[in-house]
């Protein structure tokens, strides 16, 4: 019986390419945890932004199947070495994804708008000096600028553009990225969110968050003619309960106080 996820011994490597690590494993674990939903979702087009070694996109392709199952895969990375290693990893597992060397999804934003049913992202989330962001080679895999948000904040609007009406986004975040704020920002764009996997290591605390378009929220936005900037209390409450380690200012009339 074929393995459902990529095998580490078959993952390609190169000194300029980020190797599968805790964050990659957390993302694949999140996809596995949500596999029943993903199989029911029957995504036609899946995309990974920042494919690195190819561990995640290969695992996703193994989980969901290829064209025979009706699914097409596109993966991008800004690092040409990473795209090459991804190609080796895919080939070693006998699966295919279309690969493009590009910055996030540059070149795809026009024609791929509204077509992506599942997007997976393990972004460069490590807080670094801003000048390290987008540097050549392996640094592009982690350098995230202030609060590790520089690249994330570019990916999110692109994800919003490319995701289909029924599109789902799975993204890895670090506590330092302020994931609750990310969820609130996405909420304003009409997305609901939940944590699929939470993992703390000695070095970092990771969350894999799933975002999806919330039809109630979109309806609300279209009825008022604009997106409501006021976040309902219940949303804040639910987010606070998701991120117990994060101190957000609780309002005096908070239901839980």
């Amino acid at each position: 019986m074929p393995s459902k996820i990529a095998q580490i011994r078959l993952v390609g490597s190169h000194f300029e390419v980020y190797e599968p690590c805790d964050d990659s494993f957390a993302l694949v674990d999140a996809l596995l945890a949500d596999l029943t939903n993903l199989l029911e979702h029957k995504p036609k087009l899946c995309m990974e932004v920042g494919c690195g070694s190819g561990y995640v996109i290969t695992s996703l392709a193994l989980m969901l199947g290829q064209v025979a199952c009706g699914t097409y895969y596109i993966a991008t990375d800004i690092n040409p070495y990473a795209v090459k290693v991804t190609s080796e990893t895919l080939e070693a597992h006998g699966v295919h994804a279309e690969l493009i060397t590009t910055d996030i999804a540059s070149g795809l934003e026009k024609r791929l708008t509204g077509l992506v049913d599942v997007m997976v992202v393990n972004p460069p989330y490590v807080p670094t000096p801003e000048e390290e962001v987008g540097c050549d080679g392996i640094a592009s895999a982690w350098a995230g600028g202030e609060n590790g948000r520089s690249v994330i904040d570019k990916i999110l609007p692109m994800a919003d553009k490319l995701l289909s009406d029924r599109g789902w986004l799975y993204m890895v975040t670090l506590t330092a990225n302020n994931p609750s704020e990310i969820c609130l920002q996405m909420r304003e764009k009409g997305y609901a969110s939940r944590i699929v996997v939470q993992r703390s290591t000695e070095e970092e605390s990771l969350h894999v968050i799933k975002f999806w378009r919330d039809s109630d929220r979109l309806l609300e936005a279209s009825e008022t003619g604009t997106v409501n900037k006021i976040v309902p209390t219940r949303v804040i409450e639910s987010l606070l309960s998701h991120f117990p380690g994060i101190s957000l200012r609780r309002s005096g009339n908070s239901k839980s106080s």
Binding site: I74, E98, L99, I100, G107, E109, K110, R111, L112
Partner: peptide, 21 residues
């Protein structure tokens, strides 16, 4: 690169208005 992917790609150079196909 498959031709389906080609069908989704445009020139991404700043200022280009007619970058497809």
């Amino acid at each position: 690169m498959r031709l389906l992917t080609h069908n989704m790609l445009s020139s991404n150079i700043k200022g280009v208005t007619n970058g497809f196909p």
